[in-house]
Design a binder for these strands. Structure first.
Lengths: 100, 100
DNA sequence: TTTCAAACTTTGTCTTGCAAAGTATCGCTT
DNA sequence: AAGCGATACTTTGCAAGACAAAGTTTGAAA
């Protein structure tokens, strides 16, 4: 009916799903912006970002502008994985309309 | 941008999301059918069903036909909660198409 | 009454989320 | 130079939860 095995657990967790969704909307997000938007603690956010980075889904860029600033972006792999994840969500939505 | 707080944790967990999705497709499911479809262990499945039942999302019916058989169905509350959950999924899908 | 299957419960393990507090690094100010 | 504040992380500790395996209960059929 639908492939629950395909629901990538790395992405599915609430906090990381939030991160991935935000990253999908823009080429790049700063740590501070992610934190403000998602209302996560530093430690929690960093941990989730590291998990996503370890999975190869997120690229990290450190620069020092005015202040030190770290930016995050989807990798090609991450974008693909996320699209597959979204495809499962669409399956769920479609399946959930009771068929006549 | 979208409401992550609305992502009901009771529903969001992978196993329970599977259960809710199946329950949304039919008026009623037997324990055995859920188990077969979701490939979960007895203990795991029962625990998730109890969690959903405790949350008021799922109704339980025990009857004895040929064999004892327990059936599960969405409550009105569960159906509503699930629809709200799906609405967030749709927000995520829409937000994830990078806007031009 | 032995047997079988359904539907639990119990037990134990292991992972994970999460926050709070601490640390390192860099600019800016005085 | 010394101190200050912000960023970005690390560490620590706890609590919750997923999950499987094994045991238990219940009812029906043989």
């Amino acid at each position: 009916m639908f492939d629950f095995e395909k629901l990538d657990k790395t992405i599915h967790e609430k906090g990381r799903l939030g991160i991935m969704t935000l990253l999908a909307t823009r080429p790049s997000w700063s740590f501070q912006d992610l934190k403000a938007e998602l209302k996560m603690s530093d430690g929690n956010l960093v941990t989730h970002l590291r998990t996503l980075h370890d999975a190869g889904h997120v690229a990290v860029t450190k620069e020092i502008l005015d202040r030190p600033q770290t930016s995050y972006a989807l990798t090609a792999k991450g974008r693909k994985a996320f699209q597959e994840y979204l495809a499962v969500l669409e399956q769920i939505i479609n399946a959930s309309r009771p068929h006549p």
